[in-house]
């Protein structure tokens, strides 16, 4: 049997909101260590990787070595509309069961339950290599969200140029060119901090459609971390409640190549 209780149900709601427009069906891989999910979007341009450690849950039980729960994202986000912001969530599945039961509770006054039919999803075995990035940028999620949204008004692609001292986001579109520079700002109050760590400068182009999709996960944490390398995918990482010990939602994106 699998059973997990999360007092802050909105965390799961935010995770699914961050994934739903990229992937239609995903497997929840449950083990005694927590929950993992890995999926590529249908065009194989980006990859989503979720890790929820048992620390994020108030209760966590998985009797088997592993269980694979196939979920349709549209149905799951529909179900999570039932979940109020202060509700706790309990997920429960029998070992050979064909459903995953969600219970949303606010105190004892209101209890909602939905049994979701599980799917059998063919999933490819994908691996994420341990990667050291030439450039790491930690910036407020609100800033990331705003930059991606504003830049999308001018073009389809955004260049991220990361150098010692700061990072420049720029767009070159039909109506003209624009750029936003964020200075390395380690000594300001936490919510405004921008940390740019550079071993070697990197400049790469990315599709704003995907960067904007990743921004939907912004409510999960205060800061987002970008990892850039000239020869590996961009990593966009949201730690759950800014605590890596609880887990993370990561997105990987292939750069655009000049033809």
């Amino acid at each position: 049997m699998f059973e997990a209780v999360l007092s802050n149900g909105s965390t799961l709601k935010k995770i699914f909101e961050g994934i739903k427009d990229l992937c239609t069906d995903v497997n929840f891989d449950v083990s005694s260590e927590g929950i993992k999910l890995q999926a590529m979007d249908s065009s194989h341009v980006s990859l989503v990787s979720l890790e929820l450690h048992t620390d994020v849950f108030e209760q966590f039980r998985c009797d088997r070595d592993s269980m694979t729960l196939g979920l349709n994202m549209k149905s799951v986000t529909q179900i999570f509309k039932i979940c109020g912001n202060d509700d706790s969530v309990t997920m429960r599945a029998e070992d050979e069961g064909e459903t995953l039961e969600f219970t949303f509770e606010k105190g004892e006054d209101r209890v909602s339950t939905f049994e979701l039919k599980l799917m059998d999803i063919d999933s490819e075995h994908l691996g994420i290599p341990d990667t050291e990035y030439q450039c790491n940028v930690k910036l407020p999620c609100s800033e990331y969200q705003r930059i991606c949204r504003d830049m999308a008004g001018f073009g389809d692609n955004m260049t991220i140029d990361c150098q010692k001292g700061g990072v420049t986001f720029s767009v070159d579109g039909e109506v003209g060119k624009g750029k936003i520079f964020l200075k390395h700002q380690p000594n300001v109050e936490e919510k405004h901090k921008v940390i740019v760590t550079v071993k070697e400068g990197v400049e790469l182009d990315f599709a704003l459609r995907y960067l904007n999709n990743f921004a939907k996960a912004a409510p999960l944490s205060d800061h987002v971390q970008l990892g850039l390398n000239s020869d590996t995918p961009l990593s966009v990482r949201f730690d759950i409640e800014d605590k890596a010990t609880l887990g993370s939602l990561k997105f990987f994106l292939a750069p655009k190549i000049k033809e």
Binding site: M40, H44, A207, F252, K256, E259
Partner: peptide, 14 residues
């Protein structure tokens, strides 16, 4: 023009 590269081979090989 810009071409969108693909991640499939990268993660498949890992």
């Amino acid at each position: 023009g810009m071409k969108q590269s693909n991640l499939y081979a990268f993660f498949k090989a890992a």
